[in-house]
C-alpha cells in the first residue's frame, strides 16, 4: 500500500484490464502494411501507378500491391489524375462506397491543384481534390515517379502507425548514389 507502490503500478500496469491502446497499435500496424489501393486510374499518373505495381518497382514489398477494382474492398484511394466536373460525382460516390477506415492519396499535380490545366477562364477541371475529399498524403509531380508514389505510401504508413518502419532516403545520398 502507499503512494509509492501505487505510482509503480500506474506506470507498469494499465488502469484497465482491456488494453485498447496496444490492440489499436497492432491493428494500425497490420493496416499500414497491407493497404489495398483501389484500381482507380484517371489519367497519366495511372500509368506510373501501374509501373509502381509492376516488375521493377514492385509495390508488394510494402504490402500495397493488391489493387482492388471494387471500392468496397479497398482501403486506399489513390486519385491518380485530373478530376473534372463530370467525374466529380463518380469520385464522390466511389469514396463513399469505400469501407472505413479509408485513406486518400492525391497523386500528381492535377489532383493536388489542377496542375497544368489550371488557367484563367478554365471551365472544366476541379482545382484540387482536397476541395471535396479528405486527403492524407500529397505526392507532387507531373507525373510523380513510381518511387515518389511508394514514398507517399510509406508516409501514409507513418501517419497510420505513428512510426516510420522503413529508412528515409535522404536527397543528398540519392543524388550522389
Amino acid at each position: 500500500m502507499g503512494t509509492e507502490s501505487i505510482s509503480g503500478i500506474e506506470t507498469s500496469v494499465p488502469s484497465s484490464i482491456v488494453q485498447f491502446h496496444m490492440l489499436d497499435q497492432l491493428r494500425a500496424l497490420a493496416r499500414a502494411n497491407s493497404l489495398w489501393p483501389m484500381t482507380f486510374g484517371l489519367a497519366c499518373c495511372a500509368i506510373e501507378m501501374m509501373s509502381a505495381g509492376a516488375a521493377r518497382f514492385d509495390l508488394s514489398r510494402f504490402g500495397a500491391e493488391v489493387f482492388r477494382p471494387s471500392p468496397r474492398q479497398a482501403d486506399l484511394m489513390i486519385v491518380a489524375g485530373t478530376v473534372n466536373k463530370k467525374m466529380l460525382e463518380p469520385v464522390k460516390i466511389l469514396y463513399d462506397q469505400m469501407t472505413e477506415p479509408k485513406w486518400v492519396i492525391a497523386m500528381g499535380n492535377c489532383a493536388i491543384s489542377g496542375g497544368p490545366f489550371k488557367f484563367k477562364g478554365q471551365y472544366n477541371v476541379i482545382e484540387g481534390v482536397d476541395s471535396f475529399l479528405p486527403v492524407d498524403v500529397y505526392v507532387p509531380g507531373c507525373p510523380p515517379r513510381p518511387e515518389a508514389l511508394i514514398e507517399g505510401i510509406l508516409e501514409l504508413e507513418e501517419k497510420i502507425t505513428g512510426t516510420r518502419r522503413w529508412p528515409r532516403v535522404k536527397p543528398e545520398t540519392a543524388v550522389k548514389g
Binding site: K85, K86, G121, Q122, Y123
Partner: peptide
C-alpha cells in the same frame, strides 16, 4: 458529350466567359 449534362455554355466560342 464531353461536358457535364447540365452545363449551358459553349466554351470554344470566342466570347465565352465563365
Amino acid at each position: 458529350f464531353l461536358l457535364p449534362d447540365d452545363c449551358d455554355y459553349y466554351p470554344l466560342r470566342k466570347d465565352f466567359k465563365l
